[in-house]
Design a protein around this nucleic acid. Structure first.
Lengths: 185, 185
DNA sequence: GAATTAAGTCAATATGGCTGACGTAAATTT
DNA sequence: AAATTTACGTCAGCCATATTGACTTAATTC
């Protein structure tokens, strides 16, 4: 057995009585929203945790997931463009990409107009895996929206968009091609 | 210069005219919410990007940030409990914790009642750094909530909470000690 | 007194980033 | 037509952060 901790998330000092530690950093009106920060941390962890389990069976990691996702979503994407989305180096991508190609998850085809390009496509198997992973994340998102007031999905979308650096928003909006109207106003 | 890609996030096939690729995976009513998945990916990346820049000056990484954050937030926390929150091994924590202690960011004090414990506290410097980092993330969250309808902050909070594995929610709720009412109903 | 717990340590391994330096073929510019 | 730029790939090595397994010490609990 490994040296991992299987206990509660909850530290012992919070287990029994409430010793009422400060919820916010400052006692003046300038409260820091620890809770939002932490909820986002835990939410993202579980969000990526679902795919991780499936990927482990293929001996793939999160890096493979990201590549697979954006290739599935942008069939025929150029290597250069994928690098731009992922913001990693050619060398880093090269390693995982090779593994995905070797495993028959992604295939590369020479560009029609520009024969230097190795355009990326998911194979049938790759597509199936991508769908599986997306469906897992979809389910979690659906569940997270249950019981929230009307319009919450739109609110969450706008919130997430506005979390993104303003300079990058326009590009990302085109990339995600949301069917919702998220234009700036 | 490194081999990084400084170009647009936007792949060339989306740069000019809209070739209207499918927004969803399935043409039936079972659409997969690619956009939410991707917005969350990019939002989280930028969310962690702010602190990363500051931490780099100290030669710290994200692992140090997580430790600092939860120690700042739970002064006097036991090592075992911190392991439970972070879900990493003792060995992994040991390394970053040692660096933080050596750098005078975190200090360890023997437990009063149980002298085996090395309770963790931020030093004055550690506190200052933690506040800096939290403030950065706070600003991004504030900005992300601008212009959203009334009650959106609450909506986002509930959304994030429901993204978390149901079994873990109760513990995490106590841990984050939100001043908002997020009890299950 | 025995068993358990808290914390730490040694040693090895894997993943996924990074840097710098090149190479080749194809397209574009001059 | 030659020069330059672009797209892609590769070799070699480094670093951060995680992992596993085994073991120790001290203190507490049963």
């Amino acid at each position: 057995m490994a040296d991992v901790n299987f206990k509660n998330t909850l530290p012992s000092h919070l287990r029994e009585t409430d010793r009422s530690l400060p919820d916010t950093l400052e006692s003046d009106g300038n409260a820091l929203p620890y809770d939002l920060i932490e909820l986002l941390f835990f939410a993202y962890r579980d969000f990526t945790g679902d795919p991780d389990e499936v990927l482990a069976k293929y001996e793939f990691g999160r890096a493979h997931h990201r590549v697979l996702h954006f290739v599935e979503r942008n069939p025929g994407i150029m290597v250069t463009d994928l690098l731009g989305i992922l913001r990693i180096t050619k060398q880093s991508l090269g390693r995982v990409l090779k593994q995905l190609v070797d495993a028959g998850i992604i295939e590369q085809r020479e560009g029609n107009h520009d024969r230097r390009q190795r355009l990326l496509y998911t194979t049938e198997r790759g597509h199936a895996l991508a769908v599986d992973l997306t469906r897992l994340q979809h389910k979690r998102l659906e569940r997270a929206l249950i019981g929230l007031p009307d319009g919450s999905e739109e609110t969450v979308r706008r919130f997430l968009l506005q979390m993104i650096d303003p300079e990058a928003r326009a590009d990302i909006l085109k990339l995600v091609r949301s069917s919702f109207n998220l234009e700036d106003r």
